[in-house]
Amino acid sequence: MNTPTVTPSGPQGPEATFEDTIARDQRVEPRDWMPDGYRTTLIRQIAQHAHSEIIGMQPEGEWITRAPSLRRKAILFAKVQDEAGHGLYLYSAAETLGADRTDMTARLIDGRQKYSSIFNYPTETFADVGVIGWFVDGAAICNQVPLCRTSYGPYGRAMVRVCKEESFHQRQGYELLLTMMGGTDEQREMVQDAVNRWWWPSLMMFGPPDADSPNSARSMAWKIKRHSNDELRQRFVDMTVPQAQKLGVTLPDPGLRWNEERGHHDFGAPDWDELKRVVSGDGPCNAERIARRRAAHEEGAWVREAASAHASKRATRVREGAAA
């Protein structure tokens, strides 16, 4: 393992300053010197995170036009809009590292950069909107709250804003499920069915087990990541179990039980082969998600070009007017 350490050698070079900044829990800012590995790790992680927000609009976005009440329609519309905003906050953070949004978008639609595996599962009923809010946004909050203290300043600040907005997302989901559980038998079945389908993919959102996550240690040494995948997954399970009891649904894991000794819930292992398949492009909706993103980007090119053309014509007119 390649752990950066503070080198106590001679006059402070940029490398020592960087490592000292990390050691003292200070934030690294865009114009600071940083190792190439730190920069590329961050760009990859932030870009994946941004792509996840943008692709994540799709599974729920499909239900805005069908939401069964105007109140739910407004909530869902605002939520999906927030996700576009979150994607932009994150692309903005990545751009401070010298990455370029157009390039990141090209990498997403070419399959050279990833996004969260969870968004490759289909949404089958309106209960999925609630369960996504509860599980997926809940898991995202577990992941993201520690990232508010990540060592790279712009990323941490983007996460603060994202986390605040996502707690509304989680609560609207849980509230929808509570309401549905108080409705008809058919609605209660819809909720349980959605819980059954989303539970395991949600656990996979935290990534592979620590033993199979070779880059984690370096990210943690650089304080980009603050907790391991397994720690965060445990935290999510412990948080969700009592919420499921209140809601009156069963989490689909026969091995799930409280372990008094550990002070945590024991739970079964997700199907890691499934995660590998979904991550490598073979999930139920990978092709559809990327096709939609690609179509929006390509079909929008004439609009973006028009605005650029107008801006450049106007600048020319202003220059010529000034010269005349």
Partner: peptide
């Protein structure tokens, strides 16, 4: 509705 306190969640639901 963007504000988390808008959602009426019983007080005894933890961690939300």
């Amino acid at each position: 509705y963007r504000h988390p306190t808008f959602y009426d969640i019983p007080d005894d639901v933890p961690h939300i």
